[in-house]
Structures are given as structure tokens and as C-alpha cells.
């Protein structure tokens, strides 16, 4: 079956989650697949796509596509799909991918297997596994009667595998209409260039146990020692201690990092739903009855005002070895 993978780039950099989707498509197809890339001045990115599984890259390189536009980027995917006639389309489940995939799907009268954590083929049928009810359950899903099978893949779950490969064939896409009705006029980066929790490999989160926003520096110190992203529980976001971009949980971000450190988080079902699929969970809490210990891999029952700084120290010492 032919696969087409939508490649996300911002500021001339391909997002890792797209390379993960591309590598996955190559594994499923058993050989090189097609990719589509939209933007301005993006030709230099093609070689790396080849290493991750692209045999052909459809490129829409135009000034109007310099910044993201849902209709423009869906237009590029659509134009590539018309040339390639793929049986399956994969898109990384990032904020851009979640914007592109459903519009493209509706245009082709197809469904989407959203945010899958596993994807395999049964004959020519894609079968995905995805967390539902924020990870409280898992659904095995397929595309039913969809003419094109479309899946978005959760970042950080599938490996991105580079291997030596011939440079992919590049095909420029014919101009298509880029509607001016919704266009990004500028991108405002967060003041600190932080790793987003949704994409982070390691997350350190703080909850009510940190007692107040004045104690974030203590949590931040551990976060920096681990090279992690900063997460937070709903309680502290609702209390206004930190922006909700950091919130992990059912009404925040659902994450699956390799390591999740919960400092002073009791583990409301809301929160557990958002991080329960993390590979390794460390719980630091003074209350031995806190539900977080039921999902944790490792735990220290104690005063986080002692354990968190000590842990930061120990991590730095270990990394310096």
C-alpha cells in the first residue's frame, strides 16, 4: 500500500514528530514512501527526509506558505495526494498536524485515527491503538469505509530512524489556491524558549505541594538538571501559579514522556489520566496515601522541600561523572 506523510516544518526545521511518522510509514510500507513539505525555502530539508524514509518529496515552496495556513497546508497535502493516490496518509499529532489532518480527511470523505500510540497493518487495513478518556482506556480503531486511511501519530512514541539512503526525488507541486481567509500574521514565541510538555522526553511537574508560585525556582532547578519540560497540575494552574500551557491532565495536555517526575502532586484522576502512559514515573510526595504512588515506578515519601533539591544535586553529580 502507498503511504504519504505530511512533513511539518517551522522556521526551516523539520519537526522530530514528522520524522517519527515518516520512519513509521517506511516500516509499515517495507520501503521508501512519499512525503509532502510546504513552506518557503524548504528545499534544503529534503535530504534528511530521504534518510528517514522518503523516496519522493512533493514540495510546495511559496511565499504565501512561509507561515502556517490551514487551507494552504491542507492544499499542499491535497495536491500531493492527487499525484500520489496514497492508500494511507500519516501526519504527526502536533498542533499543526491536528489542524491539517481533519480538514484533509473531510475533503476526502474519510475518518482519522487520531493520536495513535500504535499502528500496524492487517493486510491493507491500518489498525491503530489510541488512548481514550484521557488514557483511562485504550481503543483499537480502524478507518472503516474511508477511501483514504488517515492517522495522526502521537509525538515521542514511535522511533525516528535515520539510515543512509539515496537522495529522494523532488517533485514541485503545481500552484493551488491559498485562501487568504485565515492566515497567520505572526508567531509569538513564549518568552522563555521552553520545551513544550507535549513533546518532551522528560517532564518535571509541580502541584499544590510546592505551596506557592514563589517555590517554582526549586522545581525549575530539578527541571533544568534533567533537561526536562515543566509541567503542572490543574490545581496550581487554576490557582494562577502558572500558565495553563504547562498543565498536564485531562483538561490539559496528555503526555507520554520517558520520565515523568511528579513533585507535590497528589494524583487526582484528572492528572493521572494525562500522564499515566509515561514510561517511568517518579513520585515525590509527603503523603504515603497519595494516589500518585499507585501509578509511580519509584517513589520517595518525604518533604519535597528536601527531596527535590537533593534530587537536582544528585542528577547533576551523576551527569558530571
Amino acid at each position: 500500500m502507498k503511504f504519504l506523510v505530511f512533513i511539518e516544518q517551522r522556521d526551516g526545521k523539520v519537526r522530530k514528530a514528522s520524522l517519527e511518522a515518516l520512519s513509521l510509514a517506511r516500516r509499515l510500507a517495507g520501503g521508501p514512501v512519499a512525503a509532502v513539505l510546504a513552506g518557503q525555502g524548504v528545499g534544503g530539508l529534503v535530504k534528511d527526509l530521504g534518510r528517514h524514509g522518503a523516496g519522493v518529496v512533493y514540495v510546495a515552496d511559496r511565499a504565501e506558505l512561509a507561515l502556517y495556513s490551514s487551507q494552504g497546508y491542507v492544499g499542499a497535502l491535497d495536491a500531493a495526494a492527487r499525484k500520489e493516490s496514497p492508500g494511507a496518509v500519516l501526519v504527526a499529532a502536533t498542533s499543526m498536524g491536528k489542524d491539517v489532518a481533519p480538514r484533509f480527511a473531510a475533503r476526502h470523505d474519510s475518518g482519522v485515527l487520531a493520536d495513535v500510540m500504535d499502528l500496524h497493518l492487517e493486510g491493507d487495513r491500518l489498525v491503530g491503538s489510541r488512548p481514550v478518556y484521557s488514557g483511562k482506556a485504550r481503543a483499537e480503531v480502524d478507518c472503516g469505509a474511508s477511501p483514504i486511511q488517515i492517522a495522526t501519530t502521537r509525538p515521542n512514541v514511535f522511533p525516528a530512524e535515520a539510515q543512509e539512503a539515496a537522495e529522494p526525488r523532488v517533485e514541485a507541486l503545481e500552484p493551488f489556491e491559498v485562501s487568504p481567509r485565515a492566515r497567520v500574521v505572526r508567531v509569538e514565541a513564549s518568552e522563555t524558549k521552553e520545551i513544550d510538555v507535549a513533546e518532551a522526553d522528560v517532564i518535571v511537574s509541580g502541584g499544590r505541594g510546592i505551596k506557592g508560585p514563589e517555590n517554582w525556582p526549586m522545581v525549575r532547578d530539578l527541571q533544568e538538571a534533567l533537561g526536562a519540560a515543566l509541567g503542572a497540575s490543574r490545581a496550581v494552574v487554576d490557582a494562577g501559579w502558572i500558565d495553563h500551557q504547562h498543565q498536564v491532565g485531562q483538561t490539559g495536555k496528555v503526555v507520554s514522556p520517558t520520565l515523568y517526575v511528579a513533585a507535590g502532586i497528589s494524583g487526582a484522576i484528572q492528572h493521572l489520566a494525562g500522564m499515566g502512559t509515561s514510561k517511568v514515573i517518579v513520585a515525590l510526595n509527603k503523603d504515603p496515601e497519595a494516589p500518585i504512588f499507585q501509578v509511580a515506578t519509584y517513589g520517595i515519601v518525604g518533604d519535597i522541600f528536601q527531596t527535590v533539591p537533593e534530587l537536582a544535586k544528585a542528577v547533576r553529580a551523576a551527569k558530571a561523572e
Binding site: S110, K136, A137, A139, G144, Q294, Y298, G299
Partner: peptide
Amino acid sequence: AAKARWRKLSLPAPRQAVKLI
């Protein structure tokens, strides 16, 4: 004629018991 189907729903396997330090 559905374009996306839930074929099976399952609960996640319980995690191993915590190792307390």
C-alpha cells in the same frame, strides 16, 4: 459506512507496584 470504528476497548494494564525509597 462509518469512517472510523472502535473495534475494541480495553483498560490499561495495571502498572507494577511502586518501588519506595
